[in-house]
Design a binder for these strands. Structure first.
Lengths: 159, 159
DNA sequence: TGTTCACTGGGCATTATGACCAGTGCAGTG
DNA sequence: CACTGCACTGGTCATAATGCCCAGTGAACA
């Protein structure tokens, strides 16, 4: 579950140069190929590395607008709302949360005008009482994991 | 910029079986290897496919708690706050938004108690006026892109 | 002290890769 | 209508990485 320094270096290296290959990694890290291979297998079966799916940029697909919507759900309708939102392609992720809203989702749209269509489709469902939307203007820190991996590796070392 | 049906199938196939390789893809899709290779090159230089970085699960790293924080920023302090948040490993992403808050970030922590530490570190900065946090309980729709890719591919076909 | 485990460094056959090529069908252009 | 550009096909080639195996070593641990 916890990762050591070598694991951390493997992940970071992989994040920086995904097409690198096990052999080249072993050269860069100064360890045997079998070691890197074993570590990778372990990280994957641990679930630390979930996979190597392609990172697709919605903007490049024609969906440059991102927004976060906070939803308030009618009591007992949670499951239905989840199922409904799962059918909307523009809903990229959905969380149930504590706080003022009951759910929070990430949306994308082709334009600000198109966002209206998406929101209508999202909230056009009986179980949703209210939605409050925040449109993303800038993304100063894109989804990242490297700093956390380094942190986790350090914590492991010092223990 | 727009993708056609074959592009869509390539991306979906790659998302489902990331370790598949160009040759096997060409077999599955019933096209020549060179075609798949050319498409992939194009998708990557287009920026549609940003890369193939490892998907790391923060929970497996020991950070099972996720939260979203909405931040209100003192006027003119935006750049400083961005720089500050970029130094916090537990801040996985940061957006500037319209709406009630000025920024929205995704946080992870080792526990609910640890989340307090992370929030303290996040808001322990002069430019941040107020923070409101929503803890994630469930994640019914994990970050996904396939439905959107399929949608984009369909749109392209019908045009 | 003995055992377990991870790592090393090596070898092996299989397989994919990147790079080519000529030929073909299609779409758009002059 | 003929021409041109383009994407795709189906093939080859040398190079390289992969998955798998092995015995040996060192360190941690019981």
């Amino acid at each position: 579950m916890a990762i050591d320094h070598l694991d951390g270096r493997i992940i970071v290296l992989l994040a920086r140069e995904p097409r690198i290959g096990v052999l080249e990694m072993s050269r860069r890290l100064g360890v045997a190929r079998g070691t890197v291979q074993a570590r990778l297998d372990r990280l994957q079966s641990n679930g630390v590395i979930r996979g190597f799916g392609p990172e697709v940029d919605p903007a490049a697909l024609g969906y440059p607008v991102t927004a976060f919507a906070t939803l308030q759900i009618r009591q007992g309708q949670g499951a239905d709302v989840r199922a409904h939102l799962a059918t909307v392609p523009e809903v990229l992720e959905l969380h149930t949360t504590t706080g003022t809203g009951d759910m929070m989702c990430r949306l994308v749209a082709r334009s600000n005008a198109d966002l209206q269509r998406v929101i209508d489709r999202v909230v056009g469902f009986d179980g949703i009482v209210r939605a409050s939307t925040a449109i993303v203007m800038e993304n100063p820190v894109p989804l990242r994991i490297i700093p956390l991996v380094e942190q986790a590796a350090e914590d492991r070392e010092s223990s």
